[in-house]
């Protein structure tokens, strides 16, 4: 589904990713861990096509297409979803309106008609329940005045409504209490399917207790320096990252 080869990328002239390789197949869940400043969030933004993030070398193939040749919105319509670490507010634009516009943009791409408003509203209300958000949030401006935890659940809500092929979660677990973490995990687990893959960027092993990854990768110095299964995360929890960084050096 996603093939990243020798990816180099820079932000404001600083090289962040330095030859990253990663292969994600449909149905898999990958966890990306690593020390602060190793390029974990940059990876998500480079894949999503954030302006100002420049790819200097390498290739990314997503669902058979050259991902890097596509515009940000084209990548999204193809089924790439990034759950933001710090979602911004869009005052006055209701969550409902925003999500419907997003879903309709995807449908248009596939040559389908816009989703019927009543059907959409019904499904959005149900999804709200699944992520433990009051349906009143649908009428509020996108993230407007939401608490940190509500913003994260709102990201999950959008992901569940959009049903992407690849979900990238950028530290969706940070700042969440244990109950909210379980809500997020339940949401992601309910979406796991042979057709869909997830890449989860996280600092903490505890998320992986709830969403069991197929692979764990350690990103350090802009490259993946170690890959393994779930046990690698436990080892990191016990030993930290320093020993790996030493090995790489």
């Amino acid at each position: 589904m996603l093939e990243i080869e020798n990816l180099h990328a820079s932000v404001d002239g600083t090289d962040i990713l330095k030859g990253l390789n990663l292969s994600v197949k449909a149905g898999e869940v990958h966890a990306i861990m690593g020390p602060n400043g190793s390029g974990k969030s940059t990876l998500g933004h480079v894949l999503a096509g954030r302006p100002g993030y420049t790819v200097t070398a390498g290739s990314v193939n997503f669902l058979g297409q050259d991902l890097l040749a596509l515009e940000t919105e084209e990548r999204a319509r193809l089924g790439l979803f990034l759950a933001f670490q710090y979602p911004v507010e869009i005052p006055g634009v209701s969550n409902m309106e925003f999500m419907k516009a997003a879903v309709d943009a995807q449908r248009e791409q596939r040559g389908e008609k816009p989703v019927d408003a009543v059907t959409f509203m019904k499904s959005a209300r149900e999804t709200c329940k699944a992520v433990d958000l009051d349906p009143g949030f649908l009428k509020r401006g996108v993230n407007e005045g939401f608490s940190g935890g509500e913003k994260k659940r709102n990201e999950l809500l959008q992901m569940m409504m959009l049903q992407p092929r690849l979900g990238i979660l950028d530290e969706t677990d940070s700042g969440l209490d244990i109950d909210a973490l379980q809500v997020v995990a339940r949401g992601v687990n309910s979406m796991r399917s042979p057709e869909r893959a997830f890449v989860m960027v996280t600092h903490y092993q505890r998320l992986l207790d709830f969403i069991e990854p197929d692979f764990v990768h350690v990103l350090a110095g802009g490259r993946i320096v170690r890959s393994g299964d779930k046990s690698l995360a436990l080892e990191l929890e016990a030993r930290g990252y320093a020993w790996l960084e030493d090995e790489v050096a």
């Binding site: 999503a48 954030r50 940000t72 919105e73 999204a76 911004v88 869009i90 925003f98 996108v142």
Partner: peptide, 12 residues
């Protein structure tokens, strides 16, 4: 950032 959020959700 607002534009990026919208575009990441598929809006031009």
């Amino acid at each position: 950032d607002q534009l990026y959020l919208c575009q990441q959700r598929g809006l031009d």
